[in-house]
Simulated assay, not measured.
Amino acid sequence: MFTLLAVHYDDCIPGWNTVREAIPYHVIVLMVEGTATYTINGVTHRVEAGDLLVIPKGTVRAGSNTEAPHRKYTVLFNLIDDANADAQLLLPSHFMRMKISNYEYVLKRFSRLFQERWEGKPYHESICLGILIELLGVAKREPISPAVEPIKFYLARKIHLELQTHYRESIQISELAKLIGRSPNYTIAMFKKALGMTPIEYVHQLRVQEASSLLLESTMSVTEISDYLGFYDTSHFYRVFKKMMKESPSAYITNRKGC
């Protein structure tokens, strides 16, 4: 199957560049923020946030920052057994670049892969391999799935940034629609197609992510966390948290603190 060589998260590295060479491994990249320039077999590509790249072994590749540093995940891997037909099916024969339709989900999988590799807990090798295979499957399937038009991805990204900044506030779909000059129904459908969830579901995801940290690392009560994160009331917070985490806030604390 595959052997994982490295997983990197480039976080705004000044002067980032890679030398021009025929790479001795396969690479899969997710651009998270900003832009970068890749030269692939002599052709220059401007890679933007939301782009997924798969670069096969032997490709002549070079890369550098554009206007400013960027953020991206990079995974290096190789094929152990060239005769493995299943593994060969997952590997493209040529360079692939695509906009990912379910970007938030794919971003979470890259993040989990990086975390598992970095922490090195028991069985992390199997978990990392499973995530890598999933990401390669997503990359092979994406070109035959309905594409997200560039304008829709741009508008979804605009809302995405707005929600990241104001997720603790009351979210009105009508205001998000005004932000991009579209109708509320269009706004919901477009965002879901681009990111795989509605704006409200994304806000809940952000709130629950922060709640998970606050429950374990702060002295705030469940009611205080609920109010702080902008939920209607504590019971609403409980319902949303349990739906996403598959356990209640109190069970979440008990299972992780062992108390």
Rank of each mutant, 00 (worst) to 15 (best):
Q115K: 14
V240I: 13
Y103D: 12
I225F: 06
S213Y: 04
P56R: 08
P69M: 01
E175I: 00
C259D: 00
K140P: 02
G230R: 03
C128S: 10
L136C: 08
E116G: 04
F237S: 02
F153V: 06
F191W: 02
R46K: 08
E201H: 00
F191V: 01
P146R: 13
K192T: 15
L5T: 13
A156W: 02
F153T: 08
V138F: 15
H236F: 10
E48Y: 01
T37M: 02
L215K: 08
K158L: 10
L76C: 00
G130P: 13
W16A: 11
M96T: 05
R46S: 09
K140D: 04
L52P: 02
P24A: 07
I171A: 01
F191L: 06
A68K: 14
G34L: 05
E67M: 06
K246P: 00
L4F: 12
K158A: 07
N255T: 00
M31Y: 02
S250V: 14
I127E: 05
K57R: 14
L216E: 00
A177W: 11
T198S: 14
A211C: 03
H8P: 08
E201W: 05
T254R: 15
A49N: 09
R168I: 05
L206C: 01
Y25F: 15
F241T: 06
K57L: 06
D86H: 04
W16G: 04
H8V: 05
Y238P: 00
R112I: 02
T39S: 07
L155K: 13
Y238F: 10
P56A: 08
F231N: 09
P199G: 07
W118E: 14
G196D: 06
F153K: 13
Q164A: 13
